[in-house]
């Protein structure tokens, strides 16, 4: 029963704290650049403001454009319910739930791309095309990385892999853990439109990927999209933290607090990566994503040896 309560607690934490991750990333980047930077809670203020606005829709668009943000948020919410955190199982856990997890993110992407194409704008088409390309390459890396964890822990459910005694299976697989973590980190950066794949701060539509797809959304719709992005960063980050922190004390509250600290550590890490790296040329991004797959493949090789 306490397991269930903790699952619920961590899900609610995710829902509440996800926008804070972006605040931490932005503050880290500001610190590196020698600026004060925006407040940590800036995204909350933005969401509040946007939710109080009206809406402007393009005359070209149809119901698909309006469905995009809603289907996107709904799918990432269900994905969040599938993500275990801090040693506690997820609210919804069953064998092979990782496939549902991956395809829910696929559903989010499918509707984001369609909403972008619905505007009839060349720029948004560009972003949609790039998103489709890069995510097609990120998906095998994500599933192969999770397959390594599945093989090592003998469980095919996210909660089974990352909670309870499955942890001991990781004890002798240090290098494999690091390789899988590397693969998942690349997937996380690519899926969440961070440097070196996409620059969230760019001001030129021609070079954008994610930002350009949502150019025409405004008001509450844009609030949904911003929140969806934050939550997506949270769930993929939680997977990475789960991989990197297999040690558990058995005290769910303590383990959860450690995982929470690790999440914000990860946000700082993403901020550092964004500060010290340049963005890759678009033609180089596929190579990065294939190398993520290669890292996961190498990890598989290590655990199968």
């Amino acid at each position: 029963m306490s397991g269930f309560l903790f699952s619920l607690l961590w899900l609610l934490t995710a829902l509440a704290a996800a926008p804070l991750l972006l605040g931490v990333i932005n503050r880290t980047k500001a610190w590196f650049a020698g600026r004060t930077g925006q407040p940590l809670l800036q995204l909350y203020y933005d969401l509040w403001k946007l939710l109080h606005k009206g809406a402007v829709y393009s005359r070209t668009t149809t119901w698909v454009f309006r469905a995009g943000p809603i289907v996107g948020l709904a799918s990432v919410l269900v994905a969040a319910a599938l993500t275990p955190f801090g040693g506690a199982p997820a609210l919804l856990a069953f064998p092979c739930d990782l496939i549902l997890f991956a395809y829910l993110l696929g559903l989010l992407r499918f509707f984001t791309i369609l909403a972008a194409l619905d505007t009839g704008s060349a720029f948004e088409g560009m972003g949609a095309s790039r998103e489709a390309t890069f995510s097609a390459l990120a998906e095998p890396a994500l599933l192969l990385g999770l397959a390594v964890v599945a093989h090592k822990t003998g469980s095919v459910s996210l909660s089974g892999m990352f909670s309870g005694d499955a942890v001991s299976a990781w004890a002798h697989a240090g290098p494999a853990i690091l390789l899988v973590a590397g693969a998942l980190l690349i997937v996380l950066l690519a899926e969440n439109a961070r440097i070196p794949v996409d620059d969230p701060n760019t001001h030129l539509e021609l070079t954008m990927i994610h930002e350009v797809m949502v150019l025409d959304h405004g008001g509450p719709d844009f609030a949904l999209i911003l929140y969806t992005s934050a939550l997506k960063l949270w769930v993929l980050g939680a997977l990475l933290v789960n991989v990197l922190l297999p040690a558990r004390t058995g005290f769910l509250l303590f383990d959860g607090a450690v995982a929470l600290a690790a999440m914000f550590g990860l946000a700082v890490g993403v901020g550092v990566i964004e500060s010290i790296m340049a963005r890759l040329r678009l033609l180089r991004v596929p190579q990065l994503l294939v190398s993520a797959g290669a890292l996961a493949g190498l990890a598989m090789f290590l655990v199968l040896r």
């Binding site: 499918f110 995510s135 095998p140």
Partner: peptide, 24 residues
């Protein structure tokens, strides 16, 4: 790996088929 790649590419293929024909 194969199914994951097929899945990603199919999503690209059918967002294109629907998006180009019916949207914009």
């Amino acid at each position: 790996i194969g199914l994951a790649l097929i899945g990603g590419l199919a999503a690209a293929c059918f967002t294109k088929a629907f998006g180009i024909v019916f949207l914009g």
